[in-house]
Amino acid sequence: MTFDKVLLDHGGGGRASHELIERVFVPRFQNPFLKEMNDSAVFDLNGANLAFTTDSYVVDPIFFPGGDIGSLAVCGTVNDLAMRGAKPYYLSVGFIMEEGFPLKDLEQILLSMERAAQEAGVQIVTGDTKVVPKGAVDKIFINTSGIGLIPKGFNIAGQNAQPGDAVLLSGTLGDHGLTILSKREGLAFESSLKSDAAPLNHLVQEILSTGPEIHVLRDPTRGGLATTLNEIAGQSQVGIEIWEETIPIRDSVSAASEILGLDPLYVANEGKLVAILPQSQAEAVLAVMKKNPYGQDAALIGEVKAENPGKVVLKTIIGGKRLLDMLTGEQLPRIC
């Protein structure tokens, strides 16, 4: 069955998104930077090694426990820069608002953007505002772009994972995605869930201070850990094995996932990172991560293998194995 319209699945961050990008966008704008498909483009400009990225935020609801669309818009772009080892400096912001959007809500969003920018140590230096007729967008959409500087000697990219490398995860999975779902109309349930939205650039700087041998950093946002690891396995042409019993997941997240029939390995995070680095460095980096409040639940969750290039395998608690594919479309709550 072919279809000539964009579906919600195409924005889910999984295989459908990737196919849309690869089939429609990459051929049109082809250049070596875009083709790499990393969180930020990295290029040399007058001797400075710069990272540049952009992201749009359309989260519904716009306010949720642990953050709002504003904090998300700052943290997400800061994190995309940090995942290339860059120190983020400047952000742009574009607002598209629906006619009738309450000014009070806008003020609140701006306040949390200010706070997140302060925490990350970035400045919002340029911006744009558009208002569209009622119904043309849902309440408010935000785009942010960011620019950062990569220190000399670092080359962190999805292509660099090597067999034997350790896979570290900075904390618990699924907190953001399940928080958002729990507030959706028709599914609403009460919970103690809280989004993990946070700027990770300081954590990254601390990791980098242990030495230059970090191969890959990536934040498992839409599509979750499973999709992120699949991207890395594909880009580096390596296999990745992770161990179920080592993966930190909060009981509350695990419970909400059971109730909705979702898999936390595929649920979005907004304040977590995956680090892939030589085994010999793993212990030291893990210790550094655990000292940072955004890395206190960090764990060694797996290793990079030469076998099964492009594939991610989960070793289950009972000793079985399961192939972890990329997320296909949106994860839908189910009863069956």
Binding site: K5, V6, L7, L8, G186, L187, F189, I335
Partner: peptide, 15 residues
């Protein structure tokens, strides 16, 4: 139903 929703139908998921 997903495609109908993209074409404008009102399709809601419930628990």
């Amino acid at each position: 139903l997903q495609m109908e929703r993209a074409s404008g139908a009102d399709v809601r998921m419930v628990y």
